[in-house]
Design a binder for these strands. Structure first.
Length: 496
RNA sequence: GGUCUCGUGGCCGAGUGGUUAGGUACCGGUCUGCAAAACCGUUGACUCCAGUUCGAAUCUGGACGAGACCUCCA
């Protein structure tokens, strides 16, 4: 099966219809993909890893099967309130004052931090990574468009979207299933609501309070853009008035994405997104991750094991693999037990991959590699079913070991196909990083030669039944991070 | 209370109306000086209650339970 044979066979779960739909891009062979990126006001954590990895795989797979994908993932670096803050204070501005830094310095710092963590997770950079602060003009223009269309109003220097009017003309809540009347009924009376005609209205532009540092000029006031407008403005700019896939976390479904639907419908004359995809949340030992719960774990803490909840450090690839072992639409619970079992499974896959190059061809094949490859593609085509793909890879592991041990045979052709299939899905599509980065091979070759020498000496010791020496060699190497295993064909080594 | 996701073996997790998911753990075996790995095999599940059906973990309804979101705002 050729990779491009799968173009036109991908089904994805569309939040809009709540079912799997055949994916058809607007422009043949091209895909526009927009994903809500991080707000850069704090250290990257697990909540950032999930959508990043999920849509990284979407990006990788669609690219692999031959689509030209423009992947846009934004950086939110303006205009967001501190959680639980009484006053409407900008998250970034508040932190900046606390730390005596420029707001953009804070944003830059955490953006770099985010990028480093994403690199560690082997998450590919998007095609375009626009920053909200760099698109203030586009946002103002879009707010003006919405005002001109008559679906927004100015109040005390702020601009609000008229949800009631929108509901009457287009129907509100198509994406999230919210009913406007119920929303209003559930609204509590709070201060600062008087500017709005309707509690369900949302801000397109906010007038900045005097102490608010992040501020820009606009026709209405010195202020900052409302949260939802940046995604609409930037997705329109880079992907057009209508584009294929919009992704993000399920927590963004309402009100963020619902508001985006409102904005683009009015500003562009149509709802811009064809397929909405939402990844589910992550939990820590069954609980929501939150600062107040004491289970808020940053990615760096995971990589180094420096959090009381963690029994040990977990490598970035363990975390990536763990995330992909569950389907993106279900919650993922992080527990030490689950993480450690994932770690072992991943190690088994790595080990099998190492053995791939030493497989010896036979005259016939006792295993059907083509069918295996096909099942991998089918799994990916079925709403990116990465757990299924991983299960298939373990079937490949079984085959690799069987051939290695002589319980099964493969033709040279099938071995090639097995290699390609395994490496394509393991490395290219699931995005697991090869153990050896390119460029490390010289060092590795040198180490391998040295190791062959050591193992030869150990073999001699074993032949002389000098167990003390052979065990000492093994134990000392182990302590140095090198694992030695005796197999039928002699000893082999790997880095722990 | 509303909207939405979900409830599978010790743990993690796929899944189709009737046929082994897979990983990990456990147990037995092969191999081994020992260890590890690998291989073979066994055990083990579908929250509960109704209904549809020849047959449901898979469809429908209800109950119970979990999570996310539900003024502004991430």
């Amino acid at each position: 099966m050729k990779n491009t044979d799968n173009k036109g066979k991908v089904f994805l779960f569309n939040t809009l219809s709540k079912r799997k739909e055949l994916f058809k891009p607007i422009t043949p062979d091209h895909v526009g993909l927009y994903v809500c990126g991080p707000t850069v006001y704090g250290e990257p954590h697990l909540g950032h890893a999930r959508p990043a990895v999920t849509f990284d795989v979407v990006f990788r797979y669609l690219t692999h099967i031959g689509y030209k994908v423009r992947y846009v993932r934004n950086i939110t670096d303006v205009g967001h309130l501190e959680h639980d803050a009484d006053e409407g204070e900008d998250k970034i501005a508040k932190k900046a004052r606390l730390e005596q830094l420029e707001p953009m310095e804070v944003a830059q710092y955490y953006m770099d931090s985010y990028h480093k963590a994403m690199d560690a997770l082997n998450v590919k950079g998007p095609s375009i990574e626009p920053r909200a602060s760099g698109h203030i003009i586009e946002q103002i223009e879009m707010v003006q468009k919405i005002l001109d269309a008559g679906y927004a109003y100015v109040s005390e220097g702020s601009v609000y979207f008229d949800v009631e009017k929108f509901d009457k003309d287009f129907g509100y809540g198509k994406l999230s299933g919210r009913v406007l009347a119920e929303l209003i009924a559930n609204t509590r009376e709070l201060d600062g609501q008087s500017e709005k005609r309707n509690p369900a209205d949302f801000a397109l532009w906010k007038k900045a309070a005097p102490e608010h540092i992040m501020r820009w000029n606009s026709p209405w006031s010195v202020g900052f853009p409302g949260w939802h407008i940046e995604c609409t403005a930037m997705s329109t700019k880079y992907l057009g008035e209508q584009f294929d896939i919009h992704g993000g976390g399920m927590d963004l479904l309402f009100p963020h994405h619902e508001s985006e639907v409102c904005q683009s419908t009015v500003a562009n004359g149509k709802s811009s997104v064809r397929y909405w995809m939402h990844n589910n949340m992550i939990t820590i030992e069954g609980q929501k991750m939150g600062k107040s719960l004491g289970n808020f774990i940053t990615l760096n803490e995971f990589f180094t094991g420096s959090h009381p909840k963690l029994e040990k450090a977990y490598s970035p690839m363990t975390i990536r693999y763990f995330v992909l072992q569950a389907s993106y639409r279900g919650t993922v619970d992080f527990s030490n037990a689950a993480l450690q079992s994932a770690e072992k499974g991943l190690e088994k896959l790595y080990a099998a991959e190492r053995h791939l190059d030493s497989l010896k061809a036979g005259a016939t094949s006792t295993e059907n590699i083509e069918a295996l490859q096909e099942r991998c593609y089918e799994a990916m085509n079925d709403d990116f079913n990465t757990p299924k793909v991983i299960a298939e890879l373990f079937d490949a592991v079984r085959i690799i070991n069987a051939v290695k041990d002589g319980h099964a045979t493969l033709t040279a052709e099938d071995i090639e196909l097995l290699k390609t299939t395994f490496r394509t899905f393991f490395f290219d599509i699931l995005g697991i990083k090869p153990e050896l980065a390119q460029g490390d091979t010289r060092e590795h070759d040198a180490l391998d030669k040295a190791m062959q020498l050591v193992l030869e000496m150990r073999k001699t010791a074993k032949a002389e039944k000098n167990w003390a020496l052979s065990d000492k060699i093994r134990d000392d190497l182990n302590a140095a991070g090198i694992v030695v295993k005796d197999t039928k064909d002699g000893a082999e080594w790997s880095l722990a």
